[in-house]
Design a protein around this nucleic acid. Structure first.
Lengths: 219, 219
DNA sequence: TCCTGTGAAGCAATTCACAGCT
DNA sequence: AGCTGTGAATTGCTTCACAGGA
């Protein structure tokens, strides 16, 4: 899977999906380095911290511009800013979580989202006992009001953390909403059939264990 | 990244990593079909359910053998069994979770692991208030006893769900243990430096949001 | 001397196209 | 007629190797 972008000169360029994944990882690494007060980093050091090769780092970055200084490396603060700009248009995205069970609750409490500029502003559930309660600063709303609340609050992203049995219901709710992107933790490959194309990132937790046991068996 | 396996005839074959990921997804799909009572499925139907192409499905499966019937499709029960056998050697793997916070707790309660044959048998934490309590059927133990308990109980897999600040400590504990594989939810690229190679699958939750916002921006 | 940036080469994965079976 | 299995062709990704700048 490749992603088209416009280059600085205006001509279209194809970017490998794997490059985007690594760019996000480089950014995370930059933030750690900033916290440690590191000012300059070379492609080989960055590669070591992200399980890749120096050439790969340089090639990945070169899709988006020239960020380094020859013979020296990359300025950590500057590169962090550039990578942020590559990955998103906004400073803060508003995110909701569908499903206020243990997984939904854990996602709501996960500190990494806020740190990265993704703000969990609401949860949705169909359990009356949960509605009205708060997790952190995010309130739990009735899933019936999903469309209304997300549109009023301008929530663009949703994370799905409901049990498998609610999969079809949630799919329909999303298709009728104005949500712009979805992270799906339900073990089904989600494909929303709407006119406008809504990107979906599927995360299957059990799949990770299958892959792990395969790797152990065949390492 | 490619993975070498021995083919039926004994010669080594390279398998794309992406193929393994898809095989795990096909298996999940097979289980849904079994639950629905579907007996036969074609490569094109399977492809539709897993966001890929029929050719890709057939090619993926062909690395491991011939599982279909010409002109008909695949027997769901039979294929499910075959895929299980491709992905793992054991019926049940014992898994522990390091970190009994909200993420660790959510993973311990996640029903999908047990359904797939991965049994959460223990959690580890350093908070005395939590030690001795239970989540589902899994007890929370003192992280100090990690090596002893995992070896005695024959736990092979670990999932990391501790805060970033405990990253270095946990890394050391794992390196001194007999754990055979790790799923890492800490936002650091984990690379264990031990003599025997321990496979690690890194899952960075915030990274998924970065990717999503990139896809929205460039769709 | 050291490290970036990048065309070109090499390698890997996917898609095509069709033979073959039922 | 319909669907699998698979070499061959194609496309895409990574690695190489080196020019060029500090």
């Amino acid at each position: 899977m490749q992603i088209m972008i416009k280059s600085q000169r205006g001509n279209a360029v194809k970017i490998p999906y794997a490059t985007i994944e690594r760019i996000a990882t480089y950014l995370r690494c930059m933030k750690h380095l900033q916290a440690q007060g590191v000012k300059i980093i070379s492609s080989s050091e960055l590669a070591q911290n992200t399980k890749t090769t120096p050439e790969q780092v340089r090639k990945d970055l070169s899709y988006f511009g020239k960020f380094g200084k020859t013979g020296e490396g990359y300025n950590v603060d500057k590169l962090a800013k550039k990578l942020e700009r590559i990955l998103r248009t906004k400073k803060e995205w508003k995110v909701c979580i569908i499903g206020a069970g243990s997984l939904g609750g854990a996602l709501a409490r996960y500190p990494g989202f806020k740190e990265s500029g993704y703000c969990i502003v609401a949860l949705f559930d169909n359990n009356p006992a949960k509605i009205g309660k708060k997790i952190g600063s995010a309130e739990i709303f009735d899933i019936k009001n999903f469309k209304e609340i997300t549109e009023k609050t301008k929530i663009e992203l949703a994370m799905l953390a409901v049990p498998q049995s609610s999969y079809e219901d949630v799919k329909e709710i999303l298709e009728n909403s104005k949500i712009n992107g979805v992270i799906n933790f339900i073990p089904h490959t989600l494909r929303l059939k709407t006119r406008r194309k809504i990107p979906v990132v599927n995360v299957d937790l059990a799949q990770k264990l299958y892959i792990l046991s395969y790797l152990i068996k065949n390492k």
